[in-house]
Design a protein around this nucleic acid. Structure first.
Length: 427
DNA sequence: ATTTGCGCACGGC
DNA sequence: GCCGTGCGCAAAT
């Protein structure tokens, strides 16, 4: 509960800051949430990170500083207002979403960003590297656990604390050179969000020529947050998407093979024809943890262009291959191959039953349905519930637009259910 | 002192 | 030219 409450508060705050033309950075967000709802900055910070992981909120580097975006709005932008049709329909979903945030206006947000300046290094470092390996949620959730000694701190402190704490633990830098400022004091305006997680990559990333040598730090450093950022966050922990790791192992199957039709189509259509990259602009994604993972590198390196197109994966927002098939396939294919991989895969598929509400939401969000993911969350659909869902539940029970609902049901829910039952019943 | 409003420049389409 | 973004400063609280 508090979770959704925070989601609402944070998204609201971000929207509010945006409308006020103020940069929605960590500091402002924490402050506003505190002022409006009395929430502790730490807590806000932690919740924000969770949202980032779920991709409800996107952390981006814009003009050299960290900014946060309401993912729902961002995405929407891709289709712009042109789609009248959608708009109309969207409205409905908007309503539900509205509950958490007011996206009432269709504007979206996310614009262009550029992070090229070299000075970024400083900023960059904080933004990007801090990535915390993120050890995933553990870290985040634990945030509560990490009690900090100082009783009274300022927002910044708080923010920093959370951020830095995590950052410290995971100093990853893209190229190995760690950002000096990692845990250091305050990086500046937004406290170093090293927080880490986030990243989502967008168009640019996609467009980027695969040629880029990921290995070269510099290269990444500047243009590429996005590129690097390719590592998507979400999957790190998502049940559905462990593919990252898997990717490293078996790239080919993964991205390429994956059912291209599945998500991609969805995405495309949804985007209004913009097609793949269009999803969002990329500019900015903060790659936080992207940098850190080795796998990432492998992935990108290993894959040739094709991949870059599809993948860059993290992109999964737009194109990712999150299709359930893949997941299933992976597990089947892998059988008992790599330990980690197999384990993970296994876990994932088998654990549809164990997916939490957040897992489900993340899955759909990553599959290109962030708005609808909210509905799943709102309805508290976890793995078990998902298995029990019927077509009508998806089409009408979630109050989401029919188009996406159909796609979600046919391409994901149904497939996940089928896969699950096939595997489990047979075995 | 803090919050809010917003003109304006910037950069990406 | 349009649009999203956010700095920087003034006004409001």
């Amino acid at each position: 509960m508090s979770e959704s409450k925070y989601r609402e508060w944070i998204l609201d705050t971000i929207d509010s800051l945006r409308s006020r033309k103020a940069r929605p950075d960590l500091e402002r967000i924490c402050r506003m949430v505190r002022r409006r709802h009395g929430s502790e900055p730490d807590r806000t910070c932690a919740e924000l990170e969770k949202l980032i992981q779920e991709q409800t909120v996107l952390k981006v580097n814009y003009k050299g500083s960290i900014s946060y975006r309401n993912a729902a709005k961002v995405q929407r932008r891709s289709r712009k207002k042109d789609d009248v049709a959608l708009t109309t329909a969207a409205r409905r979903s908007a309503v539900e979403e509205a509950s958490h945030s007011d996206l009432s206006n269709g504007d979206s947000a996310f614009g262009p960003v550029d992070q090229d300046e070299e000075d970024l290094e400083a900023d960059t470092s904080m933004a990007m590297d801090t990535d915390s390996n993120a050890d995933e949620e553990g870290a985040d959730e634990s945030r509560d656990g990490q009690d900090r000694p100082s009783p009274a701190r300022t927002y910044e402190d708080a923010a920093m604390n959370c951020a830095s704490a995590r950052a410290v633990s995971a100093p990853c830098s893209p190229s190995g050179n760690r950002p000096g400022p990692g845990p250091s004091p305050s990086p500046g305006p937004g406290c170093s969000p090293g927080s880490g997680l986030d990243c989502v990559s967008f168009q640019k990333a996609a467009e980027r020529p695969s040629s880029l040598p990921p290995s070269s730090p510099r290269a990444l450093a500047h243009n590429d947050w996005a590129y690097h950022s390719a590592v998507c966050p979400a999957e790190r922990q998502h049940p559905g998407m462990q593919r990252d790791k898997a990717a490293a192992t078996k790239p080919a199957i993964q991205s390429v093979t994956t059912s291209p039709g599945t998500l991609k189509n969805n995405v495309k259509k949804e985007d209004g024809g913009k097609a793949e990259d269009s999803g969002l602009s990329s500019d900015q994604l903060v790659p936080d943890y992207a940098a850190g993972l080795d796998e990432t590198k492998n992935v990108s390196d290993g894959r040739p262009q094709t991949l870059s197109l599809l993948s860059d994966n993290c992109t999964f927002k737009n194109k990712i291959d999150i299709s359930p098939f893949t997941a299933a396939e992976d597990s089947l294919l892998n059988g008992g191959k790599g330990d980690e991989v197999s384990v993970k895969t296994e876990k994932m598929s088998q654990n549809l039953l164990q997916w939490t509400v957040a897992d489900v939401a993340s899955y759909f969000s990553a599959a290109g349905f962030p708005e609808q993911a909210v509905a799943f969350r709102t309805q508290e659909i976890d793995g078990k519930s998902l298995l029990l869902m019927q077509r009508s539940d998806v089409l009408t029970g979630l109050s989401i637009r029919l188009g996406p609902a159909l796609k979600i049901y046919e391409r994901h829910v149904k497939v996940l259910q089928r896969t699950h039952f096939l595997e489990y019943e047979d075995l």
